[in-house]
Design a protein around this nucleic acid. Structure first.
Length: 114
DNA sequence: GCCATGACTTATT
DNA sequence: TAATAAGCCATGG
């Protein structure tokens, strides 16, 4: 079975990211109650079942840059998906100060509470 | 159980 | 802003 118990918490947190907003791996880990597990978030996204329809394209590095190699198919698709949601992407990076997701108190209490 | 790997982060230069 | 280094932690060989 799922050897990681954190898998579910991370998946849940990812599903709460609003359309048109982005978050960093570390931020997701924090919100999921797993500070310092940014790499675990990356692992979950990579291994997660596609049927979960996770908004993986809304997850970026702390710098706002896309985590995939420049020119890779994945990087280009992520860029396209973000643009489709109204997120301006400069090269491979997004302005976190503008598009970074800042969960409201209401969202934290109703969706992220554990 | 040790070692290398990775869709990462922070600090430093 | 970019390049380096060191820290971090679950996985797999």
């Amino acid at each position: 079975m799922a050897s990681t118990q954190y898998h579910g918490q991370i998946v849940h947190t990812l599903s709460v990211i609003p359309l048109g907003r982005v978050a960093s791996y570390g931020q997701i880990a924090d919100l999921a109650g797993l500070p310092g597990r940014a790499r675990l978030v990356a692992r979950v996204l990579k291994t997660a079942d596609k049927q979960l329809a996770l908004p993986w394209h809304r997850v970026l590095r702390s710098s706002g840059q896309i985590a995939f190699a420049p020119g890779s198919d994945e990087a280009m698709e992520q860029r396209a998906r973000l643009l489709a949601e109204g997120v301006m992407v400069k090269g491979l990076r997004v302005d976190m100060a503008v598009y970074g997701w800042q969960p409201s108190l209401d969202e934290i209490l109703t969706k992220l509470a554990y």
